[in-house]
Each structure stands twice: as C-alpha cells, then as structure tokens.
C-alpha cells in the first residue's frame, strides 16, 4: 500500500486539476474562493519515513517567508491581547469620565478618550477578544458543516450530491453580509453566539465545495479501493484515507476565511445589527464614532487599524501557507 500511495496521490492530483464540472463553476467565482485559489494538489498526508514530506517541506519554506513571519508575530500579539488584555493595559475600559469626552491622543491616554470619556487604548485592546472569538467560533462551525456535507455529497454522489449541491447553490446566491444581516434582524438577541451562527449559516458553502471536490478526486484512487477491498468501513475509509487529502486546501482556506469572518462581524456590528452595547468590540467603537469623522477621527482610526491588522495577520499566514503547500509554485 505504501508503494501505491504516491502514485495514487499523483493521479489524484491530476484529477484535482482537471476542469471542474460545469455546474460547479459558479461557486469558484465567489470572492473567497478566488482568494484562497486552492489549486493545491490533493496530497497524501501520511507520514513518510526518512524523506521530506509535504509538511516538512512546507515548514522549511514557511520559515524563510517574511510575510509568514510578520503575519505570525501579528497573530500572536492579537491572540495574547484577546486572552490577556491586562498585559497590554492597566486602565479599566469601563472607567469613564464625560469631562474628557472625545479628547485626542495624549501622553496620558495614547489613543485619547471616546465619546463617553473612557480610555480608548484599553477599549481598543479589550475589543480584540470578541473579534478573535467570533472568528474562530464561526470558522469551526463552517468547517464542521462544510466537511460533513462536502464528504457526504462527494462520497455518495448521485441524487444526494445533486440535492446537496442545489442547497449549496441556494445559500451561495445570498452574499454573506446580506444574509447574516437579515438573519440577525430576526433573532431576538444578538450576542457572540448569534453573530457566529449567522456567519456560519451563510458561510459554510466554500468549505463544502472544497471538501467535495477533494473527495470526488480521490475516492476512486487505487489505495481507496484497496482499503475497501480489505473490508474497511465507510467511516474509516472517509476519515483515514480520503479526508486527510483535504487537510492542506482546507487549512489554507480556513486561515484566510477567519480574516473574512472577523471583518464580516465588524461590518455587521458597524451596521448596527451585530453585537450590541455594552459589549466592547471594534465594530461598535467604529459605529459610535462614525458621525465624529470631522472632529474626532482618532475614534475611527484606532479600532480600524487594530481590526485591519488582525484580518491582515490571517491573510498573510494563509497566503504563505498556500505558497508553501503548493509544490507547483516552488
């Protein structure tokens, strides 16, 4: 079997590069798809002894990629900020004094004060937590749905595939922000869970297509048939032999997608339909400062910079991962 594997994987890779079935192309023009641009070849992820594996090769090229290093440093900073905001600031974000409302940056308060007179630096620092939490939570949700639905559609094919593909098309017709916007308007409460739910409901489709196409491209491979002939159960074939091929493309996609999700949450909150006060979030900060662009632009500037840098860190890492995992680009 080990002898068979590289060959099967290579063949699978060729299949993976073949033009997709026509009906599916509509999805690949969606933005997230194009960005992820996962022409990654389906690769066997099994451990190989004594020779360079895909992952060790990838790691070697990642370490030399300056964009990956910048992205990682940014990400670590924001993750620490999300978990331990006290490390970055001593000020209490809820300690407010209206007398200093909307004062600009100074030595005492680096980012100035917000409209309520609260220290803005500590507010912006504490805003990291909710963004990162929603980003990871909704990414995990989209992955679970995407992997389950994609594996079922790809593996069983036939009418199951057709039905699931149509359902995916239906959700694709609604842009992420628009769909989540309407869904959130319906929900009685809008906290972290509700916003994540709305993003999951309208965000799982690309992961599904990614997994589905990987499954389709390898399910007829020799090593899968060998496993089937040896009597492996369907769940075992899927989990042990087929789905590991999807790890690389899904990893690249979901890293970039976390950035998209964080931006989407901030957008929804900014539009007034996401998180609500007294939650501390970048979207809310920008929302409550939007009419002060003329006289207190710093209130928009600082949370925007933090928000954009967080999104940037995921995109940098995702881009670097794609380059490292795609042997064609070497």
């Amino acid at each position: 079997m080990t002898d068979n594997r590289p060959d099967a994987a290579r063949r699978a890779g060729e299949l993976g590069n073949a033009p997709e079935p026509i009906g599916d192309r509509s999805g690949t023009v969606q933005r997230t798809d194009e960005w992820a641009d996962t022409t990654l070849e389906a690769k066997s992820a099994g451990p190989e002894i004594g020779e360079a594996s895909l992952w060790s090769d990838a790691w070697r090229s990642l370490r030399r990629n300056p964009f990956f290093l910048i992205g990682s440093v940014l990400l670590v900073v924001f993750l620490v900020m999300a978990v331990f905001p006290q490390l970055f600031t001593n000020a209490d974000p809820r300690d407010c004094d209206l007398a200093r409302s909307a004062q600009g940056p100074s030595a005492a308060a680096w980012f100035g004060y917000d409209v309520q007179g609260c220290d803005y630096y500590s507010n912006v620092v504490y805003g990291a937590r909710i963004s990162v939490a929603i980003g990871f939570l909704s990414m995990l949700g989209t992955l679970v749905i995407g992997v389950v639905v994609g594996a079922l559609a790809g593996y069983y094919g036939g009418w199951i595939d057709s039905v699931l593909a149509r359902i995916t098309d239906i959700f694709y017709g609604l842009p992420l922000i628009l769909g989540a916007f309407i869904l959130l308007a319906v929900l009685p409460e809008r906290g972290v869970l509700e916003v994540s739910l709305a993003l999951i409901v309208f965000g799982w489709m690309t992961a599904m297509r990614l997994v589905r196409s990987t499954v389709v491209s390898v399910k007829e491979a020799d090593y899968v048939q060998a496993a089937r002939a040896l009597g492996a159960s369907t769940p075992r074939i899927l989990l042990r032999h087929i789905l590991p091929n999807a790890i690389a493309p899904v990893l690249v996609y979901s890293t970039i997608f976390i950035g998209t999700l964080i931006a989407a949450e901030a957008t929804l909150t900014f539009l007034g339909i996401g998180l609500q006060l007294p939650e501390i979030s970048w979207g809310l900060q920008i929302n409550s400062a939007q009419n002060r662009l003329r006289d207190a632009a710093h209130l928009i500037f600082f949370p925007s910079v933090f928000l954009s840098l967080t999104v940037l860190s995921f995109i940098l890492i995702g881009d670097a991962l794609r380059d490292a995992l795609d042997p064609k680009l070497r």
Partner: peptide, 14 residues
C-alpha cells in the same frame, strides 16, 4: 493584500 485586509466600511471612512 492590504486592500483585502481592510474591511470595506473602514475603507469607506478612509
């Protein structure tokens, strides 16, 4: 890369 990292509404304000 920078453009896609900045959410559209932030870009609008900028």
């Amino acid at each position: 890369t920078l453009i896609v990292s900045i959410p559209v509404f932030v870009l609008g304000f900028v």
